[in-house]
Design a protein around this nucleic acid. Structure first.
Length: 536
RNA sequence: GCGGGUGUAGCUCAAUGGUAGAGCUCCAGCCUUCCAAGCUGAUUGUGAGGGUUCGAUUCCCUUCACCCGCUCCA
């Protein structure tokens, strides 16, 4: 199954369109069409319901150390600029890049290493991407530059140790990692991955603000507000769904990497001693959720980050990844990251930006020896009024992409099978096998033929069911064609009014995946559909 | 950002320096009593901008988007 056919169906049936398509589109931005908006709403509502409103806060759930409370939140997209300085995004998302004028390649300024080397009376600073093999690369580059053969390797006079390019003030004697001539690297230039805007009428730097690159920070800065207004004890999870923005350098792969996207995030606050157990709980709970929503376990993996990838303060991070059709065989794309964040975020918003490379965490200092970014100074610690224990909660963060999940559900649902036509000959059928909870339209109401009062009765049933579900009425063309149309939209049930309906007030209900039909009373339709959706 | 490829109807794809065509879909009508049937009819298109030319969808330039590889990936 190819991504092209999925993209084509999305366009054809109105799941996804390119943003601003009539003007040629805009890279990294996508619109949801009539079916897409329902699908994505259902994804978000399923998540919100399962994680927040329908959460059982009285019982100890399987794998959980104790019962826990869940609350929701909806924060602004533009927040105080200091939020992003203390969160680390301001520094992190301000990568400095250098371009090579000769090869047109671009490198992260801080990820190039180099070393002085002399030969034939010339001294140059030869660079290579920082890695274990960088000395090998540098040697090759130097030999080539000085036009020396391998056997003359000893003519190279190395000076000093390998150092980062950021240590260099001038690039005149620098040989770029892929360049043939010296001094082709440009000055380091800022690459802002956060969208910048201006608050207020003046567009001076005092009014500079950023569109949030993640929803999580809104939860951290409101942690105390939520605690104070709800009287919950820890452990407590706070959930938020909302748009985030990242100025990706290379948006690619349909909606997978978009510049405007929607996140579904939980910040789960707990006692430090229990944080590992809660981390394990959330990993498993979130993986299970995707299974429950119909993603085949074979296409889904949990990838634990290696200790090398982890921030020092973190016990663990696990990505839930899906085998998207656009990925290479055996490769997966991230749907959700579940990370143990320790007390990094709350402390950073209290004390000032902490140095994530430090262990134990210490305040990050600027060149002047003062805190690099000042925190709020507000007390975000938690005091357990039963034990009088006061501590900074640790945080587990299950952070999911709503658009990525929606895309994964679309990919997973896309199925081509064989079904007989009216002459019994097998024909190819495209069917979107979406979980009934996620399906944009729950049922199609179809008169078998457009006469004998069938349309009238069908419309009555349609209007009645419409009060409860998103249903669709279709009387155009042969019924087989209408079944196929609803299959392609992922509609799980078709209610058909036929000759018998007029006699005994029964209709047929057809299952999308099997095309099997059974006969039920008109009065039972609502309950039958409801039961099947919930047990789907 | 670099290299390569592709942009023609809603979809899949033809063709051409001189009025752009097919299949499917969609729409209207007829016919149809359960899985894309049939008949009749209708709508719709060269990504955008510029250049060459009597004339450009075709040739050239720029740009935008998508795909593949590299790079990046919080």
């Amino acid at each position: 199954m190819s991504m092209d056919s999925i993209v084509s169906l999305c366009k054809r049936r109105g799941f996804l369109f390119q943003s601003s398509e009539i003007y040629g589109g805009l890279q990294g931005f996508w619109d949801y069409g009539p079916l897409g908006v329902e699908l994505k709403r259902n994804v978000k509502e399923a998540w919100w319901s399962d994680m927040v409103t329908a959460h059982d806060d009285m019982s100890t759930l399987a794998g959980a150390p104790s019962p826990y409370a869940m609350e929701g939140l909806d924060c602004t997209i533009i927040m105080h600029p200091q939020v992003w300085k203390c969160s680390g995004h301001y520094d992190l998302f301000h990568d400095f890049m250098v371009d090579c004028r000769e090869t047109k390649k671009r490198y992260r300024h801080d990820q190039l290493n180099g070393r002085w080397v002399e030969a034939k009376g010339n001294k140059i600073f030869v660079t290579a991407p920082a890695s274990d093999e960088e000395q090998g690369h540098m040697t090759k580059r130097a030999l080539k530059f000085f036009n020396l053969r391998n056997k003359h390797i000893d003519d190279l006079k190395w000076e000093g140790e390998s150092t980062c390019l950021t240590e260099m003030t001038s690039f005149e004697e620098v040989l770029g990692p892929d360049a043939k001539t010296l001094g082709t690297l440009t000055e380091p230039r800022e690459f802002n991955l956060m969208f910048k805007t201006y608050v207020g009428a003046l567009s001076g730097e005092e009014g500079a603000a950023y569109l949030r690159p993640e929803t999580a920070q809104g939860i951290f800065v409101n942690f105390k507000n939520v605690l104070d207004s709800t009287r919950h004890r820890l452990p407590l999870g706070i959930a938020q769904i909302g748009k985030s923005f990242r100025n990706e350098i290379t948006p690619r792969n349909f909606t997978f990497r978009s510049r405007e996207f929607e996140q579904m995030e939980i910040e789960f606050f707990c006692h430090p001693d229990q944080s590992k157990d809660w981390y394990m709980y959330w990993r498993d709970r979130r993986l299970k959720w995707y299974h429950e929503m119909g993603i085949d376990s074979g296409n889904l993996i949990m990838r634990e980050h290696s200790p090398k990838e982890l921030a020092h303060y973190s016990i663990g991070t696990a990505d839930i990844e899906y085998a998207f059709p656009f990925m290479a065989e055996g490769e997966y794309g991230e749907l959700e990251g579940v990370s143990h964040r320790g007390d990094f975020d709350l402390r950073s918003h209290m004390e000032g930006k902490l140095d994530e490379k430090s262990n134990p965490l210490t305040l990050q200092l600027g060149d002047d020896g003062k805190p690099k970014w000042k925190g709020s100074g507000k007390d975000l610690n938690y005091r357990d009024d039963l034990t009088n224990d006061k501590y900074t909660p640790h945080v587990i963060e299950p952070s999911a992409g709503a658009d990525r999940a929606t895309l994964a559900f679309l990919c997973e649902a896309y199925t081509v099978d064989q079904q007989p036509d009216d002459k019994g000959k097998m024909q190819e059928r495209i069917v979107m096998k979406l979980h009934p909870r996620l399906a944009p339209i729950k049922a199609a109401i179809l008169p078998l033929v457009k006469k004998d009062g069938m349309p009238e009765l069908s419309k009555e049933i349609y209007l009645d069911l419409k009060k409860h579900f998103n249903v669709f009425y279709d009387e155009k063309g042969a019924v087989g064609r209408r079944y196929r149309r609803s299959d392609e939209a992922g509609t799980p049930y078709c209610i058909t009014v036929d000759g018998q309906t007029l006699e005994d007030k029964t209709v047929t209900i057809r299952e999308r995946d099997t095309t099997e039909q059974s006969r039920i009373k008109i009065d039972e339709c609502e309950q039958v559909i409801r039961d099947r959706i919930n047990n789907g």
